[in-house]
Design a protein around this nucleic acid. Structure first.
Lengths: 116, 116
DNA sequence: ACACAGTATAACACACTGCTTATTTAACGC
DNA sequence: GCGTTAAATAAGCAGTGTGTTATACTGTGT
């Protein structure tokens, strides 16, 4: 399985596509509903982003009459995860700090305002 | 620190740049030595890739006379790590399988040949 | 001071991305 | 069958990224 490695890295390099993934992380959606979220884009534009995500193996499509229901396929991120994981080892104590940061964020949805 | 978030996602979307990072993961190198590894590219081309990595905060440069010694800055991958981490939760048992896979690979540098 | 070594930048060519509007495809309800 | 709805594809175009060659920059050694 997963012979298709149509560049996950390229797929997630676009902010709109990351936004789509983030959206789908909260639940599956119809293509139209997804497109509606991106008011600054037209339907065909979003449709093509969905195609990229499809080909990268990051989403599944379920056909329902005229509607296409997109579902997140998180395993598609395996390759990416594997790649970053290699670098975690060289993350000294920084890693711990990061995990503390992430934990904190998870608990009270508001980070301390560091960064950005 | 690290105010500059010049798109880590874009920086790692290029295979050459990932190769540079992978190379630097094995130790710091002079710019010229890095360029020499990519026989299919000219020196200026590699130099510009290094610039992208620099601006993305993924490498450090140490000036030594005319030479620039590039060093991996793994903390630069924090943002990426944070992003993927969000999806790990929805990785069901697949995650475990992956971690077993990664562990196995770490131990005996040769994966079982699955995938790719 | 001058030639050289090491690297970065400039200027340009060209392919690729991502957007748009227009159109096609496909399934539904009447 | 026909109009409608939902989504994908086609065609065209602007902007960006990546490559090249040529050149500038900067420190070294003589």
């Amino acid at each position: 399985m997963t012979i298709v490695t149509t560049n996950v890295f390229l797929a997630i390099s676009d902010p709109t596509r990351r936004a789509v993934l983030d959206l789908l992380a909260t639940g599956s959606r119809k293509a139209g509903d997804i497109a509606a979220r991106f008011h600054y884009l037209t339907q065909p534009a979003v449709s093509r982003h969905l195609k990229v995500l499809r080909e990268a193996g990051l989403v599944n499509v379920e056909v329902n009459a005229q509607q296409r229901i997109y579902e997140l396929k998180p395993e598609g991120l395996t390759e990416l995860y594997e790649w970053v994981a290699k670098y975690q080892a060289m993350w000294p104590e920084t890693l711990e700090a990061l995990e503390r940061y992430l934990d904190a964020r998870a608990v009270r949805q508001k980070p301390k305002g560091k960064k950005r």
